[in-house]
Amino acid sequence: MADLPSPTSPTFEDLVAEGDAVPTEGWDFSWFEGRATEARPSWGYARGMAERMGRASAALDIQTGGGEVLDSAPRLPRLTVATEGWPPNVAKATARLHPRGAVVVACPEDAPLPFADGAFDLVTSRHPVQAHWTEIARVLRPGGTYFAQHVGPASVFELVEHFTGPLPDEVRAGREPQRERADAEAAGLEIVELRAERLRMEFYDVAAVVHFLKKVVWMVPGFTVDAYLPQLRSLHERIRSEGCFVAHSARHLFEARKPTDA
């Protein structure tokens, strides 16, 4: 019997083209299975969000992406609204959430929330680009809760700085939890809980890196394969040599409450 040819490893060009071709809408990260891993925070944001949704009467999910996290809640309040600023995600979230009775509103990330004062007793968000505390406080009812998982300072900067070079200290300090606490309190909210963790990430091929940077666009603004081909090639060689590229994400959990006498 003739020997079967041994499978060949994908080339650098094959991997880059594969990662570049994957659709980026929504917040479904299942494509990364077997290609990248990220440890999860100990607090279980989706579980905590679902518990609070089950008790709420009117809820708002800010920057919902494709609606995947909100849709994971077994029960949604009768009045459930989600905002999203990127048109492909608006369409995806609408298709996902409308059958459950939730309304999706197209709203730019930096625009005022298009809702009345005190409209919601629960506001949630997973990885907002920025928390607009005055707007969050405004749309919450007295006694209402903001429950969210934020991206912390210098998150995945081992990867980011491979492409950008060293970033200044003020950039590395952005999203610092205690600074966000002060901003939330200045907007009139009381902090119930604030927890932070740093979590290991591993990238097993350069296709995963390409897709990650195209999907999470604020990591390396303006990222394209052509613009960063030398950095991608050196990263590919490093992964082949070391088995993976290791970085660390930063996450913090926020629970804040609007005082009942507000």
Results as ranks from 00 to 15, higher is better:
Ala2Phe: 15
Pro7Glu: 12
Thr8Lys: 13
Leu15Arg: 04
Ala17Met: 06
Val22Leu: 05
Pro23Asn: 03
Pro23Asp: 00
Pro23Ile: 07
Thr24Leu: 07
Gly26Pro: 07
Asp28Leu: 11
Phe32Arg: 02
Ala36Phe: 14
Ala36Thr: 10
Thr37Ala: 07
Thr37Pro: 09
Glu38Thr: 12
Ala39Met: 10
Ala46Gln: 03
Gly48Met: 11
Arg52Phe: 06
Arg52Trp: 08
Leu60Thr: 05
Ile62Asn: 00
Gln63Ile: 07
Gly65Leu: 09
Gly66Glu: 07
Glu68Thr: 04
Glu68Val: 10
Val69Glu: 02
Pro74Asn: 10
Leu76Ala: 05
Leu76Ile: 01
Arg78Cys: 11
Val81Asn: 03
Gly85Arg: 00
Trp86Cys: 05
Trp86Asp: 03
Asn89His: 10
Ala91Asp: 01
Thr94Met: 05
Thr94Phe: 08
Ala95Met: 05
Arg96Asp: 02
Leu97Ala: 04
Leu97Pro: 02
His98Gly: 05
Pro99Trp: 10
Val104Ala: 05
Val105Asp: 00
Ala106Ser: 11
Cys107Tyr: 09
Cys107Gln: 08
Cys107Thr: 06
Pro108Thr: 00
Asp110Tyr: 12
Leu113Ala: 08
Pro114Ser: 01
Ala116Asp: 12
Asp117Thr: 14
Phe120Leu: 11
Phe120Met: 06
Asp121Arg: 08
Val123Thr: 01
Thr124Phe: 12
Thr124Gly: 11
Thr124Val: 15
Ser125Tyr: 10
Ser125Thr: 12
Arg126His: 14
Pro128Val: 08
Val129Tyr: 05
Val129Met: 00
Thr134Ala: 15
Thr134His: 15
Ile136Tyr: 04
Ile136Pro: 11
Ala137Ile: 07
Val139Pro: 13
Pro142Ser: 06
Pro142Trp: 10
Gly144Glu: 00
Thr145Ala: 12
Tyr146Glu: 00
Tyr146Arg: 12
Tyr146His: 03
Gln149Pro: 10
Gly152Thr: 08
Ala154Thr: 02
Ser155Arg: 04
His162Asp: 01
Gly165Lys: 04
Gly165Phe: 13
Pro166Phe: 14
Leu167Asn: 10
Asp169Asn: 13
Arg172Val: 11
Ala173Trp: 13
Gly174Glu: 09
Gly174Tyr: 04
Gly174His: 11
Arg175Ala: 11
Pro177Gly: 14
Pro177Arg: 01
Glu185Phe: 13
Gly188Ile: 02
Gly188Met: 03
Leu189Arg: 09
Glu190His: 12
Ile191Ser: 08
Ile191Glu: 05
Ile191Cys: 11
Arg195Ala: 14
Ala196Phe: 14
Arg198Ile: 03
Arg200Gly: 00
Met201Asn: 13
Phe203Lys: 02
Ala208Glu: 01
Val210Arg: 01
Phe212Asp: 01
Phe212Asn: 04
Leu213Lys: 01
Trp218Met: 12
Met219His: 11
Gly222Asn: 03
Gly222Val: 12
Phe223Glu: 00
Phe223Ala: 06
Asp226Cys: 05
Tyr228Thr: 09
Leu232Gly: 05
Ser234Val: 06
Ser234Trp: 04
Arg240Gln: 08
Ser241Tyr: 09
Glu242Gln: 15
Gly243Gln: 05
Cys244Gly: 04
Phe245Asp: 03
Phe245Tyr: 15
Val246Ala: 06
Val246Pro: 13
Ala247Ile: 07
Ala247Lys: 01
His248Tyr: 15
His248Leu: 02
His248Glu: 01
Arg251Pro: 11
Phe254Glu: 01
Ala256Thr: 08
Arg257Asn: 05
Pro259Gln: 07
Ala262Asp: 03
